[in-house]
């Protein structure tokens, strides 16, 4: 479980997160949604321990994430940033293998190689294994980076807008792979811009607006016309198809 208690963050004198308190349960997909400038990415980076809060604290599986050493943090949480650094000449297999770095610190063993192969198989990357990362399409590249985060074998996977600039085919591909992660695998927290994707795949939602928490909970309580209309200040209707909500802006 991730427990966030009275979290406030400032950037350049402006309040980005204001007294946010919530709990993220283990299991499934949690989407952080909200309009531009709501503080979604800041919240994700604060959870990852990369942004020092002005007030409040975050505990991941009972560990105060901002007091934990880097390595301990990396064994609890993996993070895929919005624009992950691309190292020239790195092949897909080598990229995924970097996910094991917190475990082996530069001396990979047979276990690490087995985990990398399993991650490659789960994200269907074997045919691309020896291709340089910079030669991949946007969707393939994003799949490789998600596989790298998965290979870190942490209880939590944090993804900051992993679907940015992806077409519907790759969006669906990545979201279905994340949804189908094994039950004993990582819980996924991801920042999403696309409400219809959040509605279709998220088990839980965290709704932020102007740095404040508007709603948090299972999708049935948060993907509602009232919450979303208030969140985006525009009329939003919700209908259900095959048991999942569909967002309609009117």
């Amino acid at each position: 479980m991730i427990e966030i208690d009275g979290l406030s963050c400032e950037r350049g004198g402006a309040v980005v997160l204001d007294d946010v308190s919530l709990c993220l349960p283990r299991g499934g997909l949690t989407a952080i949604i909200g309009p531009n400038g709501a503080g979604k990415s800041t919240l994700l980076h604060a959870i990852a321990g990369l942004i020092e809060p002005g007030r409040g604290q975050i505990r991941v599986e009972g560990t105060n994430i901002h007091r934990a050493p880097e390595r301990e943090r990396a064994l609890l949480l993996s993070l895929l940033t919005q624009s992950p650094g691309a190292v020239p000449r790195l092949s897909v297999r080598e990229l995924v293998a970097f996910g094991r770095w917190p475990h082996h610190r530069g001396r990979p063993g047979a276990d690490d190689r087995a985990v990398v192969e399993a991650a490659m198989a789960r994200f269907d990357l074997h045919t691309l294994a020896d291709r340089p990362v910079e030669a991949l399409s946007g969707g393939q590249r994003q799949r490789a980076f998600v596989a790298m985060a998965f290979a870190q074998t942490t209880p939590w996977m944090l993804l900051d807008e992993p679907l940015a600039a992806l077409d519907p085919k790759y969006t669906r591909d990545i979201m279905e792979r994340l949804r189908d992660l094994p039950k004993d695998g990582p819980s996924v927290v991801l920042v999403l811009h696309d409400l219809s994707v959040a509605a279709q795949y998220a088990d839980h939602c965290v709704c932020l607006k102007d740095g404040r928490l508007v709603a948090s909970g299972p999708w049935r309580q948060t993907i509602t016309s009232g919450v979303l209309s208030d969140l985006y200040e525009t009329p939003i209707r919700i209908t259900e198809i095959e048991g999942r909500p569909v967002v309609l802006t009117t």
């Binding site: 050493p69 880097e70 993996s78 993070l79 940033t81 992950p84 650094g85 190292v87 996910g99 530069g106």
Partner: peptide, 21 residues
């Protein structure tokens, strides 16, 4: 050298991989 390999990813990614960047 191994730490520099990770540092090449940039500060956020390297720290999320457990490097004392």
């Amino acid at each position: 050298a191994p730490a520099l390999d990770v540092a090449a990813f940039g500060r956020s990614s390297a720290r999320s991989l457990g490097l004392a960047y």
